[in-house]
Design a protein around this nucleic acid. Structure first.
Lengths: 198, 198
DNA sequence: TTGTATATTGAGTATATGCTCATTGAGTAA
DNA sequence: TTACTCAATGAGCATATACTCAATATACAA
């Protein structure tokens, strides 16, 4: 690979990273291509050399994010984790990417179609692992028999509610950091079958 | 009141109703003032005679919506309803205003600050009634002892998740119509204390 | 009936922003 | 060294859209 195409690759990378940072901080709707070019320290026109349209750039940033998350989720595949372990890992993955993930939820309606498909794909992967772990514990009689979709949706709903309404729960910083553990315990308590002692 | 100011009032009303209809159908971010003037059958400039800025119009529409909901919620005040009855009423109120309410959730980030305050006020009113009904049933030992905020947030989270991700649950029409009952039963099952028979 | 007040109009302005393209200059191959 | 290639530039274009304002039409007061 020669110096020229290496340089091009690096510029593309700078733009992607700058866009990711700005989207995570300010959302997809408010960040414009000019802001991105300044943050990436390239000219405005340079953006369009690498990405034909603003939408294409957004899609590229989200696709890359999706791959990163997918790789993280994939680690759950091998081992035979308990439901609580899987959910804790889920919280951790979100925590590591909280800003960007939150904007993805908040600005979902203004995203290009391909980007929305990607966000759904991420959730499907998570759903698979949660469903698998839940099944085992339902069989063992540890947790209540709840339809797959309701169990998953209730968990996702809780996380998404805290993320998208962040301002209600923390002044600044990570919601998952502050409330993730509590949410996990709460959810487990709701679905666990209480065995009466004595 | 003379004919002239009556006419003015009617025009203002036409604009508010038209804006409400378009916002409910297409969201706050995508509907522009021109579309609203066409829907209201007034000139574009007329919008700004009644509302100095687009934001002011949005705030007016949302304030009116908030008052409408508050009046509906207020009915719960008097009687000594069970938690399930209160939640069912909540689902019904949302169902009656589902399109607009959903857009309010979806476009929350692009709304003017005053409008966001209003949406929080609506939720506070509901929260109050749910909390009151829940307390009684916790005392009676019918439902689990869960912190007020977690109980309310879990319920809101479920509803909001189904509303904002509508496309996952219905092809068209009302999500609450189709899933409201199921969600209610599911939530009650989660928080109810299971008494072992025999 | 006539003059004034005002609700409404719609062409026009200001601005934001995605996108283009002729130009530049550094890298590459002969 | 020289001719060519192409990544990068940034001034400029096209469009969308919130908002203005002089002109108009209608209601009201005398």
């Amino acid at each position: 690979m020669n110096k020229r195409s290496l340089q091009k690759e690096q510029t593309r990378e700078k733009i992607l990273l700058a866009a990711h940072r700005l989207f995570a901080a300010n959302g997809f709707a408010t960040v414009n291509t000019h802001d991105i070019s300044v943050e990436a320290e390239v000219s405005h026109g340079c953006i369009f050399v690498h990405f034909p349209t603003r939408s294409d750039l957004i899609i590229a940033v989200i696709m890359r994010f999706g791959e990163k998350i997918a790789a993280r989720v994939h680690v759950l595949e091998e081992a035979n984790h308990s439901l609580k372990t899987v959910l804790r890992a889920h919280v951790d993955i979100i925590k590591e990417n909280e800003s960007f993930y939150t904007q993805l939820l908040r600005d979902n309606t203004v995203l290009p179609r391909e980007a929305i498909v990607q966000t759904i794909a991420i959730q499907s992967a998570v759903s698979h692992h949660i469903g698998k772990a839940a099944h085992k514990e339902i069989k063992k009689g540890k947790i209540m028999a709840i339809a797959d979709d309701l169990l998953f949706n209730t968990w996702m709903a809780l996380l998404h509610y805290y993320l998208t309404n962040k301002q209600l729960f923390v002044v600044s910083g990570s919601v998952m950091e502050k409330h993730g553990g509590k949410l996990l315990d709460h959810f487990m308590k709701l679905i666990t079958i209480k065995t009466r002692e004595a």
